[in-house]
Design a protein around this nucleic acid. Sequence first.
RNA 1: GCGCCCGUAGCUCAGCUGGAUAGAGCACCAGACUUCGAAUCUGGGGGUCGGAGGUUCAACUCCUUCCGGGCGCGCCA
Length: 487
Amino acid sequence: MRAVLTDAAYGRGPARDGAVNVEYVSANPTGPMHVGHGRGAVFGDALASLLVFTGHAVTREYYINDAGAQVDVLARSAFLRYREALGEVIGDIPEGLYPGDYLKPVGQALASEWGDRLRSKPEAEWLPIVRAKAIAMMMDEIKGDLAALNIHHDVFFSERSLIEDGNNKVAETIDFLRAKGDIYEGRLPPPKGKPVEDYEDREQSLFRATAYGDDVDRPLIKSDGSYTYFASDIANHKSKFDRGFADLIDVFGADHGGYVKRMQAAVKAVTAGKATLDVKIVQLVRLLRNGEPVKMSKRSGDFVTLREVVDEVGRDAVRFMMLYRKNDAVLDFDLAKVIEQSRDNPVFYVQYGHARGHSIFRRAREVVPDLPAEDSARREYLSRGPLERLTEPEELDLLRRLALYPRMLEGAATTHEPHRIAFYLYDLASEFHALWTKGGTELPHLRFISDHDASLTKARLGMVQAVVSVLASGLAILGVHAPDEMR
RNA sequence: GCGCCCGUAGCUCAGCUGGAUAGAGCACCAGACUUCGAAUCUGGGGGUCGGAGGUUCAACUCCUUCCGGGCGCGCCA
């Protein structure tokens, strides 16, 4: 108890060896983020903060998929907007291109930068130019979306940089694996499930993923000679290992579920088993309003953007609610509920607990006039109080809950489950609210502030302070504000 | 067909990595405001933890199998 008060780092873990790399978001730079991306972003960010808090050296990484066919589609879509910006009537966006309005600014930027000089060039010439511009602008947009959630990465790692001329890491990685005997030329059985139209049985370079626990071996080179996404992702993970990370965490969306085994197999092969990869799959988010599914957005083309949601309900609600669920369970996110100020809404409930504590401090000056207003001074002051006078069973229950905090964090960190923090905070707030009300009603001797016993008041304020500190600490890890008042 | 995830109270979900009578919110019923913010709290009813086997002194938790739902399943990322 005294430790909670005196130790500003209560719950922190000891510094540990080894560096952890958390890769999250990694949304394709082809448009604005949607709420599914947002969940992965919040999850990854909170997990990274949790690991930092428990003593790990953490790098937050974003892998930019800027090399595949989808960015060429992006470029062609942007080129259409460019011609539109020059005054052409482009009509409906053709099937296969991105229809969203968000590419209009890219077209306009290209028009003002290049005039009509791109229009007459052959695609081979304009495509790299348009592509680079579009990717840059999309990444700016994504970074803006992330900033609205207070999410920032240490490293933005470009897939394209892996295949640069003269420094082709993908080729290096393939050579590396080939030298180990992990690559062979062979054929794959046709895929099960829904038929693939242009299936063609051919001999190809296959990674021996089955030797490392995967179900089938995986192709690395397409028939046109370019690398598969998987090939560059192996190089991506090898790069992490080469940069000194032995603890790798990937946060993927639900649609990447089938990708886990092959990626873990690849990491095993490429690091000789010296690195571990944990892949956290973040399940879908169902956006609701009062229980009804939310309509699609015009701006994005076909989905509700993350920014629209954040703008509507606020950063704290988005962050907390996305962490108030196990990552591998589908999440219902109700836009109406998360801004309610009631017990239905855990965000509010926990924040209110924190605010209520501060409310008690404000009122307490009538009994303890020299109670410092500043947080660390107040902690220091209260840590010298007669804490041994906290003897009521309800108080001891609360103290036990506080004592659980470090162990809870440790468990959350080792299992990579930040949602445990959110649930713990909810429980702590609940116990605190209950004790508060008891003091106000049926058991007046439990009131935190005793007008005739300044000593006891100090001890109890110490307890309140401990609750406030732990709530603030946990909320900080989740990236949610801990307000002093909420009137 | 295969892989991964989910299945716990009417509804939405926790369950501390096997440990004591399975918890919370909503909803329903009954209560508490001359209170340190009632934006809160107290009590009650309600569950064969999807089914069936197995491992164990002990299973919501681990294994097998079936049922139901979601996601994914060559050179898309």
